[in-house]
Design a protein around this nucleic acid. Structure first.
Lengths: 199, 199
DNA sequence: AGAAAACTTGCGCACTGAGCATGTTTTGCG
DNA sequence: CGCAAAACATGCTCAGTGCGCAAGTTTTCT
């Protein structure tokens, strides 16, 4: 114990480790036996915690499986919040997603492949869209200050957040189905298309 | 092939009636005792069917509660499909949502108020977004033929469907929170904002 | 160091989703 | 019309789940 306690704190680090262990165990087991044939108990066992403890970390098996998606969307909101104050809303959003892509560029290819396969399971579709939906309201609040003042600013903020996240979500879905093109390129194309006017 | 509209058929009518009875019983009980305190068994009882039969109609209590939303989105897709063949995609979508609003204009105000209150429950938020998400892929297929031919047409169709449904969904959410303005007006405003280019 | 706060775990219970077998209703067809 | 098949409702049963509660344990704070 020669090192001083880090800013994160031991307890927080342990919790993060347990959450990550549960998540990874869930993904590994689901890749081996299929999502439907994996029980919460098996996941907890694989992560060396009790079934009850699993419930302290995740509300359901599906949430545990898609923890990366939830975390990534949460991180994306942070990145938007950290953009320079003067930046317009749409610019801040597109820059933030680029930063997010850069952060996730150095992933273990094997893990990525397993996780990719997992997300195509129809049983997880609901949770997958939820991972985006939960962030919509918060993201609207974050970008509200970057919009021109207007009586309908709340609606515009909500719509901007919704359309941005919808573009990212659709890009991810298309990429899941057609892996030939890099994800970042699909996202860029989807955002460019979204920025155009509809007729 | 024959063009006759299928006679409803006794069996189909009974199924629809049972489904509707379960749905309405669920909404009534949830309004009385709160969503969390209503069990599937209580709903089945109130609709005079067995608990097991409930499962034959709805995958969960939440799905039963939001059956109107699922049905309405399904009907919206029909309305889009029925638009004249020459109509451009965005036009067809906006005209269809107007037709949908017209169809739902004559609702029992008491029922509408109960259902409205229900949808504000956070426990149903996930199912509520799902009701839109499940339609996205199908809607994309329906409007694909109304887009100019292009190599990226599939992506554009998906995005158009996603943005349209997102606008409708956000409008509904805003209306749930601020009932002062008529829903149809909020929807129109959201769609108009969506049609503008982003910057 | 020692109390307080946070966390883990085992136990238990109400609820759920679903397969199977059985009795009932509806449909299609000769 | 009548009947066999298909579709459906129901009861029974079970594995899984979410969660409250009450210990026991670990981390934090002062």
């Amino acid at each position: 114990m020669t090192v001083t306690t880090n800013p994160p704190g031991l307890r927080e680090r342990k919790k993060a480790a347990t959450r990550q262990a549960l998540h990874e165990a869930a993904v590994r087991l689901a890749a081996e036996h299929g999502v439907e044939h994996v029980t919460v108990e098996a996941i907890a066992d694989a992560a060396n915690v009790s079934r009850r403890t699993f419930s302290n970390y995740f509300a359901s098996k599906e949430r545990a499986l898609l923890h990366t998606d939830y975390a990534r969307v949460g991180r994306l909101i942070e990145l938007v919040r950290d953009r320079p104050a003067g930046e317009a809303a749409w610019t801040a959003l597109t820059r933030a997603i680029e930063a997010s892509a850069a952060e996730n560029a150095d992933e273990d290819p094997e893990w990525r492949a397993r996780y990719r396969t997992l997300r195509r399971d129809p049983a997880l579709a609901g949770e997958l869209v939820s991972s985006y939906a939960v962030a919509e309201r918060e993201l609207a609040g974050v970008i509200a200050g970057r919009l021109p003042a207007s009586p309908d600013a709340p609606l515009r903020a909500r719509l901007l957040a919704a359309h941005f996240l919808a573009a990212v979500r659709v890009a991810n879905q298309m990429w899941l189905e057609h892996p030939d093109e890099p994800l970042a390129d699909v996202v860029r194309q989807a955002l460019a298309t979204t920025a155009e006017p509809f007729t």
